[in-house]
Design a protein around this nucleic acid. Sequence first.
DNA 1: TTGTTTGCAAATCATTTGCAGTAAC
DNA 2: GTTACTGCAAATGATTTGCAAACAA
Lengths: 130, 130
Amino acid sequence: MESKRNTEQKKTILNALMCADHPTASELFEVIRRENPRLSRATVFRVLGQFADDGVVRRLHFLGSDTRFDARTVPHAHCHCIKCGRVTDVFDGDFTPLLALNEVGDFTVLSTEIEFNGICADCSRATGDN
Amino acid sequence: MESKRNTEQKKTILNALMCADHPTASELFEVIRRENPRLSRATVFRVLGQFADDGVVRRLHFLGSDTRFDARTVPHAHCHCIKCGRVTDVFDGDFTPLLALNEVGDFTVLSTEIEFNGICADCSRATGDN
DNA sequence: TTGTTTGCAAATCATTTGCAGTAAC
DNA sequence: GTTACTGCAAATGATTTGCAAACAA
């Protein structure tokens, strides 16, 4: 299914996604709901799915987390904190060659994910030296 | 929860996983069930989860796929075919530096995933040039 | 008008969990 | 004997779907 009509809901969802930080569909729904209680959870899932299929946004899958969405289309890697769940973008140029790969052996690459799982600076600090 | 007792079921599941090719828990359950109809689906999920927590196996998350498991502990990347779902290992040495990274900026890296999504050779061939 | 899109509620489906019986150590 | 482990069935929870009303083009 492809997005064909430009509705208020789609604008609202894309806007919210651009302001949010790699949210899950449900997290985004909760944010939107405050300003826009009419918009349904099913629509958030449906529209995010369309956007992802259309290449407007990116779907992200992390260990122990629901599917997250990212409005950044520029290739980049992600750090995913397994303590607080926060996801941060990494634009390090060292990863560019890998992210630009079009094939690996005889496999045709359409998209590449580089994902670092670990502990973010805030959580290391909070945990201390143990 | 950590694995403490060495049961028949655990041996069976680990064996099956080593023979299988990045299966989901349910796929592995179906394979095991043929030889071992007593072993329950819940146990497969439970034991695979323990193994993953203990670092004996690796959990993998791909676009549009349930959680998959990998008995290979050596660092490596994956190709995930979005047509047939097959996952193949990539041991290319070019990825070694990235997989060996212990930190990215002030983020402490515990594990790294490199995932190529696209079309495998078999599926490209089957689809032809369209 | 005409075909999309939405909201709602119900349905799916992978995964988890409670519990009582079974087995490892 | 003690306590973890298993099987079963029921619960959970994210995501999807059917359908009738609402809306974009």
